[in-house]
Nucleic acid binder design. Structure first.
Lengths: 341, 341
DNA sequence: GCTGGCACTCGCCCGTAGTGAGTGCCAGTC
DNA sequence: GACTGGCACTCACTACGGGCGAGTGCCAGC
C-alpha cells in the first residue's frame, strides 16, 4: 500500500518532534505543533496505518508514537529536507581547520570538530595507505644491524618501522639501499608495490641481498598488510547526552565496539569509490552491539578520489538532516585541505 | 587519637569487602566473613570511632559503612598487603608485549593490556620528547618550496612536519641542510636544542638563510613546544562496570575529562624523576570532574631514567593492591622493552 | 473522507504500610 | 576496662493501591 502525502507529512512530523523532544508524540500535540490542517482523529487514523506498515510504533498502549528504524529510513530517503549549514557552523569549520600543521593535526582537529558540531561520536580514518602512493622511503641507520624505515605517502601519512638486519652494513650500503628502494617504489601506488618489492630483492647485489630481504619483508608489511589503517575518535562523552533513554540504558557494548578498530573501520572505512554519503540506521548495522545506533559516514579525498572515510555515530534518534549536512561539509573541507598539500 | 590494631583490621576488612561487593558493609557480615574474633557489638564500637575519625561513613542511618577517601588513603598507605601478580597475569603481559613492531605498537599494546588486566581505564603517555634526544633529522623534498621534516628520537618517537620555504631550493641545498642540522642536533637532548637551532640559522650561508629560518621555526615547534606529548587511551568501556553506582551515576564529566589530553597528561605525565608509583584517591585529584575517581600512575623508562608515564583510572572503590601491582609490573616490562631497542 | 465524541487503556505519580538490615546504647560479665 | 548480648530505633527499600491524564481506537454523523 502506498502512503499518501499527508501520511508522509505525519511521519515527518513524528520524526522531527521525537528527535527534538525525545518523547513519544501523540496525535494532539502533533496537530498543534505542525499545522497539518486536519483534526487529531484524522491523524490518528493515519498513524494507525503508519504503524501497520511498520514505520512507527507505540512503546505501550496509551502512549504516543515513536519512529521505528524503518520509519527513520523512509524519513532519510524521502522526507528530510536538506538543512543548510548555518554561517556559524561554516565559520567554525574554517576556523577549526586552518592552521593545521600536518596530517596528524588535520585528522585530530577534524574529529574533534565533527564531534563538536554534531554533538555525537566522531570517527575519522586516516588516509588509507592502500589508496595512496609512495612519495619517499627513508632509511635511517640506528646501529650497524638496525635501520629505521620511514615511509612517506603522498597523502601525508608517515609510517615507520624498525628493520633488523642479518649482518652489519656500512653507511654506503644504506645509501645504496635507499637509492634502490626509492628508484623502484617512489611514485608507485601501494597496491602495485608487492611485485616491485619482489623484484627489488632479486635485483639486489649479493652483498645486500640479506639486508634487502629483511627490508622487503618489513616493506610489504608496512605498505599493504597490517597497520594499513588508522583511526581517530572523539566525542564519546556525547553518548551520555539524552540520559539513559537512548541505547536502552547500557553504554557498555557501544563503548566496547568503539574500542575495536576493526569495527570502526568497517563502519566508516568501507566507502565506495564515489563519495556517496551513507546512513546506516539501527538494525541496518551489521554489528549486534550497534543496533541501537545510527552511523552517518562518507568518504573524503582531494578531488573526486577517495582516500579515507569519516563519520559520526549516535542514537537512531538523531537529527539526520543536520548530521548529514555537517558530515558532508566537513568531508569536503578536509578534502580541500588535503588537496592543498 | 591513634587507632589500635583491631580498628585497623576492621578498616581493612571494610575496604576489602566493600571493594568486592560494592555494598555498604555491616558489623555482622564483617565478623562472619573475616574471623576477627570479636562480636559484632565490638566491631560496631570500633566503627563508631573510625567514623568519627573520618575513615568511614554511613550512606544513611541504618546502613552499613563505606570507606571515605581518607579511609582508602590509610588503607593504601598502611594496610594493603602487596598482592603478587598471578602467573597467568605475568604470562599475559609477556605474551602481549612480545612481537611489538615499533613504538606505536608498543604503546598501543601496552594501553590495551593495562586496561584488560586492571579492568579499568588505561592511559599511556608516549615517551616524552623533552626527555629524549635527537637521533636523526631527515628532510624529504615534497616540492621545490616544501620539505617534510622527520625527526627521530632515541626513544623511538618519530615526528613529522611540513616546512614551507620562502624560495625554491635544489636537491643539493636539501643535502646541505640535512647535513647541517644533523651535525648540530643529532645526539642533543631536546631541552638543549633551542640555542643550537639559533646557532644553525646564524651559521647558515646566505643562500640557505631563508630556508634555514623557516626550518628552525618548525624545528623549535616540533622539538620543544606543542605536540611534545602524545597519549594513548583504552578501556573506557570499563567505566560502565559496576553499573551506575560508582561515579554517582554520571559518566559524562569523566568521559569529557578523558578527552582532554591536557588533563590526561597532568594525571599520568607529571612523574618525578624517580619512578615512584603514585596513587591519587578521589578528592586528592586536582580536577573537579575526577573527584569520584582514583588514579594509579607511575613513570617508565629504559633503566632508571623516566621517559614517560602510564597508569589507570577507576572508581575510588578499586582494588588498590591488585591495580598497583599490575601498573608497576607493566611499567617495568615496557621499560625493558624500550631498553632493548 | 474527515470530524467530534466517548469509552478505555495503562504508564506514572503519589501515599501508606510492612520488612529487615543495621545501628547506638546500656547493663552485665570476665 | 574491654567485650558481649540484648533491645529499641531508624530508615531505605518494596509492594500495594488509587487517582490522574495522555493517548488511543472506534463509531456515528456531517
Amino acid at each position: 500500500m502506498s502512503l499518501d502525502d499527508r501520511k508522509l507529512d505525519v511521519l515527518r512530523a513524528i520524526v522531527e518532534d521525537y528527535v527534538a523532544t525525545q518523547e513519544p508524540v501523540g496525535s494532539k500535540a502533533l496537530v498543534e505543533r505542525h499545522h497539518l490542517g486536519v483534526s487529531p482523529a484524522t491523524v490518528r487514523n493515519d498513524m494507525a496505518v503508519l504503524e501497520e506498515e511498520g514505520y512507527i510504533r507505540q512503546p505501550h498502549t496509551s502512549a504516543g508514537r515513536v519512529p521505528t528504524d524503518r520509519g527513520y529510513r523512509l524519513f532519510v530517503d524521502r522526507l528530510s529536507r536538506v538543512k543548510p549549514l548555518s554561517p556559524a557552523e561554516r565559520r567554525a569549520i574554517e576556523r577549526f581547520l586552518v592552521g593545521a600543521l600536518d596530517l596528524d593535526d588535520v585528522v585530530h582537529r577534524t574529529v574533534r570538530l565533527l564531534a563538536q558540531l554534531t554533538r555525537q561520536v566522531a570517527v575519522v580514518q586516516y588516509p588509507s595507505l592502500s589508496r595512496s602512493s609512495v612519495r619517499h622511503l627513508e632509511l635511517v641507520p640506528i646501529s650497524t644491524t638496525r635501520l629505521m624505515l620511514v615511509m612517506i605517502a603522498d597523502t601525508g601519512r608517515v609510517e615507520q618501522r624498525l628493520v633488523e638486519l642479518p649482518t652489519p652494513i656500512t653507511a654506503d650500503d644504506v645509501t645504496d639501499l635507499r637509492r634502490m628502494v626509492n628508484e623502484k617504489l617512489a611514485g608507485a601506488r601501494m597496491a602495485e608495490t608487492p611485485p616491485l618489492v619482489e623484484a627489488l630483492v632479486e635485483e639486489s647485489p649479493p652483498v645486500l641481498r640479506g639486508a634487502m630481504t629483511m627490508l622487503s619483508t618489513v616493506l610489504l608489511e608496512t605498505l599493504v598488510e597490517r597497520r594499513d589503517e588508522r583511526i581517530a575518535l572523539a566525542g564519546t562523552a556525547n553518548l551520555t547526552r539524552g540520559g539513559l533513554l537512548d541505547f536502552q540504558g547500557s553504554l557498555r557494548p557501544i563503548l566496547e565496539a568503539l574500542e575495536e578498530e576493526v569495527i570502526l573501520l568497517k563502519l566508516i572505512g568501507e566507502v565506495e569509490p564515489t563519495s556517496t554519503l551513507r546512513v546506516r540506521i539501527g538494525d541496518e548495522n551489521e554489528f549486534e552491539d550497534l543496533r541501537s545506533t545510527s552511523v552517518v559516514s562518507t568518504g573524503y579525498g582531494p578531488g573526486p578520489v577517495i582516500v579515507g572515510g569519516l563519520g559520526v555515530l549516535g542514537p537512531t534518534r538523531m537529527d539526520y538532516p543536520g548530521t548529514i549536512a555537517t558530515v558532508r561539509a566537513v568531508a569536503r573541507y578536509v578534502g580541500d585541505l588535503l588537496a592543498q598539500n
